[in-house]
Computed example of a mutant assay.
Amino acid sequence: MQSTHSISLTVVEEIAKQEGVSPEELRPPLHYVIDTDALDSLFQSVDGERVPSTVKFTYNDYMVSIDETGDVNVVDHTSVTEADKTVV
């Protein structure tokens, strides 16, 4: 995790990259979907505090996951759900 960026800003940048737009153009803004202050506080560990192993949430058609190191992964949610389907 980069110490100069909040985790919510990193998430916004990654989603914007997937969308091919600037972070300011994301609709709806991330804070409409998740409490960004709470998200940031989860990953601001202070000596001895525990950071969650993984946080996952959806934003529009994307599955966003953040691991304990602050690595943000944004995947098209429709491709994830399609992969979960089986043919009978």
Rank of each mutant, 00 (worst) to 15 (best):
M1P: 03
M1W: 01
M1E: 08
Q2I: 06
Q2C: 04
Q2T: 10
S3I: 09
S3T: 10
T4E: 12
T4D: 13
H5S: 11
H5G: 00
H5A: 06
H5K: 13
S6Q: 09
S6D: 10
I7A: 02
S8W: 00
S8G: 08
L9N: 13
L9H: 10
T10A: 15
V11T: 09
V11F: 03
V12G: 00
V12K: 07
V12P: 00
E13Q: 13
E14L: 08
I15K: 01
I15A: 05
A16D: 03
A16F: 01
A16K: 01
Q18T: 03
Q18C: 13
G20E: 04
V21E: 08
P23M: 02
E24W: 03
E25S: 13
E25I: 01
E25F: 03
L26G: 03
L26V: 11
R27S: 15
R27E: 15
R27L: 12
P28D: 07
P28Y: 05
H31I: 04
H31L: 03
H31M: 05
Y32A: 11
V33G: 05
I34T: 05
D35N: 15
T36D: 02
T36F: 00
D37I: 09
D37T: 12
A38G: 06
A38K: 12
L39V: 06
L39D: 06
D40S: 05
D40F: 01
S41K: 13
S41M: 11
L42P: 00
F43S: 09
G48K: 02
G48H: 02
E49C: 09
E49W: 05
E49L: 10
E49T: 14
R50E: 14
V51I: 15
V51Y: 01
P52M: 05
P52Y: 01
P52H: 02
P52A: 07
P52T: 06
T54N: 12
T54A: 10
T54F: 11
V55A: 06
K56L: 10
F57N: 08
F57Y: 08
T58N: 14
Y59T: 02
N60W: 00
D61L: 04
D61S: 12
D61Q: 11
Y62E: 06
Y62C: 06
Y62R: 03
M63E: 14
V64E: 04
V64F: 03
V64G: 05
S65N: 10
I66R: 03
D67I: 04
D67N: 15
E68D: 12
E68P: 00
E68F: 09
T69Y: 12
G70L: 03
G70Q: 02
G70P: 01
G70E: 02
D71T: 15
D71M: 14
D71V: 15
V72C: 06
V72A: 05
V72Q: 04
V74K: 03
V75N: 06
D76R: 09
D76S: 08
H77W: 12
H77P: 00
H77G: 08
T78K: 08
V80D: 08
V80S: 07
V80A: 09
V80G: 07
V80F: 04
T81N: 07
T81V: 15
A83C: 04
D84N: 13
D84P: 00
D84L: 15
K85G: 09
K85Y: 04
K85S: 12
T86V: 14
V87G: 06
V87I: 14
V87E: 14
V87D: 13
